[in-house]
């Protein structure tokens, strides 16, 4: 079996994998990083979103071998020890979840949104940019609030929690 090496959350990892191994399988089953979820497995729901070389991608539709030498960040790589990433903290403060299954993908997508568009995100922009992430519980309302606040916090100008 071919061998694949990449950096995951700052740590160099390597494993022998079948070529058909998806990045999400590599993360969950080989690295035991089960925070990244598989919702639909058809690249629609966004529960599997991780960052590869700084960009949000759907890890259910990417081969692990295609990520040779890549820098991968998952939900587990965001917090600094016990200090949550500002976007994680905002999801907690604004209750941006109910069952929580979509949350890791939502947070990874939200951080990517800030990386691309900056910290001052309008509600309209956030709703539009969430096109690739599906939540079946919340109706998105608190997710949008959380992302606005988390984005502002990432930019160093926190919005008050409502």
């Amino acid at each position: 079996m071919p061998r694949v090496s990449m950096r995951v959350n700052g740590a160099q990892v390597s494993a022998s994998v079948e070529p058909r191994t998806l990045l999400v399988q590599f993360l969950r089953e080989h690295q035991r990083l089960t925070g990244t979820h598989v919702g639909c497995d058809t690249s629609q729901c966004g529960a599997c979103v991780v960052h590869v070389n700084g960009k949000a991608i759907k890890s259910c539709t990417t081969l692990a071998l295609s990520c040779e030498g890549a820098e991968v960040t998952t939900i587990e790589g965001l917090a600094a020890g016990h200090d949550l990433h500002p976007m994680q903290a905002a999801f907690r403060a604004h209750h941006g979840l109910q069952c929580g299954f979509c949350t890791p993908g939502m947070i990874m997508a939200a951080i990517d949104m800030v990386n691309r568009l900056g910290p001052d995100l309008s509600e309209e922009t956030i709703r539009h940019e969430l096109e690739g992430n599906i939540c079946r519980c919340t109706g998105y309302h608190n997710i949008v609030k959380a992302i606005r606040a988390g984005a502002a916090a990432m930019g160093g100008m926190p919005l008050a929690a409502e």
Binding site: G46, K58, A109, D112, E129, E131, G132
Partner: peptide, 9 residues
């Protein structure tokens, strides 16, 4: 095309 994550790939 697609959504932001799809457009990255």
């Amino acid at each position: 095309i697609g959504d932001p994550h799809v457009r990255h790939r």
